[in-house]
Amino acid sequence: MTTELFTTANTVTAHEHIGFELGWDYAHYRLVPPAPYAQEPSPLRNGLLAGQAAFGSRTLAATRPVRKWLQLRLHAWLRGRSVELMQVTPNYLSQLEVSHCPITRTALSTATLDSSDASVDRVRNDAGYAAGNLAVISTKANHAKAGYGFHDALRFVKQIEAGKLGGIDGLSACQWSRVAVLCSYVEPMSHEEASTIPMLVLPPNRLRMFNPVQALQAFISQQLMAPGWSHRAARFEAMLPGKPARRAFLTFFHALLPRVLEASRANGKQHTRWAIEDAWRNPLVLKRWTAFARLLTATQCEELVARANAKKLGALRAQQLPDEAATEGWNLDSRGYVPHAVLMKRSPTSARTGLGEQIPQPVGTQASLPL
């Protein structure tokens, strides 16, 4: 067996590799990173210059989603955060766009440097920028949420209410309640605990829900977002296991329904969404939901969502993933940071990057904040 020794000066780390690839992609779309990153010596600049030499004028169109995607990756690279690039693409980011912040409910702006600007948030802070862990919220909500999770947000709500404070970090008790619910979707918890959480914010598009009872809760709530909900609800009721569950479902649904219809009448889709969320603040709605949900097991909730989706009863499509695939690319072991590793040995004959010959092992990529 032969062992080759080489110094770190002749190697490329994961961080350097990602920076080079990012610069290469900037060149591929005929864009330049903002100052000073395009001028200062770095792997990013090396990739940019190599890409410019390779592509020349044969570049791709720099659409708005592409610019967001590159900006996301730049912010992540500067902070050492990982980005999973197989699924987190410009097209994927475009599917996350919303008109209003789900936390503050303010209309989102773009590139105004104001607190209302849209930004991409990692819902679970100990994970990277990966499919299923991203939501678009306002910069204000993103900065306040920071690294806090479900239990932190609940504690803030109690502190605000007990001390009669105006808010914490610029968010009110109602807004922190929405942060708590948003975080709960990606934090595994017992079926009993998850059954007691009101759906104060409907799950954003493409968010992965770790608790089956909340997936069922979202499926039922979102029935009211589209016409034909009465027919779909009746068909869903027929799928429930036994008369007690059907009776409990009807009792719950009849508590939720009038509050939504009254608040959302002729006000448009966004107001209907808010009306559904606000209806969950009513103690009777939550009490009846919990009573219904606890007649089911987590497995039954999962099966109900799958069957209803197969019958196309949902207002939105739900896709179920195996447990091992749910956090693929999240880099939970490194808490969402790029794992420290030497990926390559430099070689003067590298065809594309000049970085050398790649050692076959997984590479964690990365991403960012504002849109």
Rank of each mutant, 00 (worst) to 15 (best):
T2Y: 12
H17E: 04
F20Y: 14
P33K: 01
P34H: 04
N46M: 08
L49Q: 09
R58H: 15
A62R: 00
T63D: 04
R64I: 07
P65T: 07
L72C: 10
L74F: 05
H75N: 12
W77I: 02
L78Y: 06
G80W: 02
N91H: 12
H100C: 08
C101F: 03
P102I: 09
R105H: 11
R105S: 08
T110V: 14
L113V: 11
S115K: 13
D117W: 06
V120E: 03
R122A: 11
N125E: 10
A127F: 09
L134R: 02
L134M: 02
A144C: 02
G147R: 12
K158T: 14
I160N: 04
G163T: 10
G163F: 14
A173D: 13
V179W: 01
V186D: 11
P188A: 04
M189C: 08
E192V: 09
E193P: 00
T196E: 14
N205V: 13
N211I: 02
L216M: 09
Q217K: 05
A218N: 04
L224G: 01
M225P: 07
S230H: 14
R232W: 14
R232K: 12
E237I: 10
L240H: 13
K243N: 12
L250H: 08
L257P: 01
P258N: 02
R259D: 03
L261F: 07
H271L: 12
T272N: 05
A275S: 15
D278S: 06
A279Y: 06
P283N: 02
L286M: 10
A293Y: 09
R294G: 08
A298E: 13
T299A: 11
T299Y: 04
Q300T: 10
E302C: 07
N309M: 01
A310S: 12
K311D: 10
K312C: 15
G314F: 02
R317D: 15
R317V: 11
A318V: 10
L321D: 15
T327F: 15
L332N: 05
S334E: 15
P339S: 14
P339Y: 06
L343D: 00
L343W: 00
S347Q: 08
S350V: 06
T353K: 08
L355G: 00
L355Y: 00
E357D: 11
I359L: 05
V363K: 01
A367Q: 08
L369G: 12
